[in-house]
């Protein structure tokens, strides 16, 4: 294809996105668009799968049958989101095995928040309320993103995430209204998860490398700093409502801005975790790689059985 032809295709492509048309798997797309989407969508899928681990950690110890069932259902939803998003990413010409390979070798990233440990039951509440809360803020705009399979996946994912967020808040509310011991447990979880949740919305705009291009393709509709402000403004009144204190001495309502001012985020900690040196990075990867390696003989058996079954069927026909 001549350079001129490509330019004309690109122009046509950008015009379609500007008109809010969806790009579908068989449509022509610039290589960079394909690659960027593979990167972001697979990262999203990996986050769902790795995200099963910190919550899965409490399934056997959930405090009541009702909570156990709800937690199981929630973690199962996450597995479903992973499956859905891997399938959507496959439409861009990469296999699930290749994506796993990228995750296991550290080439692909996943949300850094899952590299923190879940050490008490209240962490199940904090993750639902804060982590899923921040995820929704990130994801709702993606329901209108330009790539059709991703946009459609996000509509379903967001519905379930908003249910998870309410469920998490309800866990926190119950603890906050419970015994002093339960309230302490809730406050401690909020103290530990607050700052990592703010970091989850990404580096500040001045250092974020992907923002401009992603805005154009509607992979992103608001900047990281705007999303973070939205999250804080939405969450602070919720903490007030249940009598928990946001662990930020600089947090203050700014009448003029109509928003909360907040304290300095420890970006050194953020980069340490992103670069693989958070409290649980190594354990999370070990768990994923371990499950994959222990499952190899099972997957081989399933393939071998399917082939034999097919061969037997063909033999019968002959």
């Amino acid at each position: 294809m001549s350079e001129e032809q490509i330019k004309s295709l690109e122009k046509h492509f950008e015009e379609r996105i500007a008109r809010d048309e969806k790009i579908e798997p068989k449509d022509w797309m610039p290589e960079k668009y394909r690659k960027t989407h593979i990167r972001q969508m697979s990262q999203h899928a990996h986050s769902e799968i790795v995200g099963m681990l910190p919550e899965g950690n409490w399934i056997t110890r959930a405090p009541s049958l009702r909570r156990k069932v709800a937690l199981l259902a929630k973690v199962q939803d996450e597995a479903g989101h992973g499956l859905y998003l891997y399938s959507a990413t496959e439409t861009l010409g990469i296999s699930r095995d290749e994506m796993y390979e990228q995750l296991h070798t550290g080439k692909a990233k996943y949300s850094s928040i899952f590299n923190y440990p879940t050490i008490t039951w209240a962490d199940m509440g904090a993750i639902g309320w804060l982590v899923d809360g921040a995820a929704i803020i990130n994801q709702v705009p993606l329901c209108n993103t330009s790539y059709g399979p991703y946009a459609r996946a996000m509509i379903r994912v967001c519905k379930e995430e908003s249910f998870h967020q309410r469920q998490g808040f309800e866990i926190m509310m119950k603890l906050a209204n419970g015994t002093p011991e339960q309230k302490d447990m809730a406050q401690d979880a909020l103290n530990r998860w607050w700052w990592p949740s703010l970091m989850m919305l990404g580096p500040t705009d001045d250092v974020s490398v992907h923002t401009e291009q992603s805005m154009k393709w509607k992979l992103k509709r608001k900047s990281n700093d705007d999303l973070r402000q939205q999250f804080i403004d939405q969450t602070v009144p919720q903490a007030d409502l249940i009598g928990l204190t946001i662990p930020d001495p600089d947090l203050k309502w700014n009448e003029e801005r109509g928003s909360y001012d907040f304290g300095e985020i420890d970006w050194d900690e953020f980069w340490q975790v992103v670069k693989g040196h958070g409290p649980m990075n190594k354990q999370r990867m070990k768990a994923r790689v371990g499950a994959w390696e222990r499952g190899e003989w099972v997957r081989d058996a399933a393939m071998a059985h399917a082939e034999k079954k097919q061969a037997r069927k063909e033999k019968q026909v002959v």
């Binding site: 899965g56 399934i59 056997t60 199962q76 597995a79 499956l83 891997y86 499952g295 099972v298």
Partner: peptide, 24 residues
Amino acid sequence: GELCGHGPTLETDIACTNISLDLF
């Protein structure tokens, strides 16, 4: 329930969690 997140494939993981969920 112990297996949640540690299955040999994503599909079996979902199925095992589902069985656990039914049983509870």
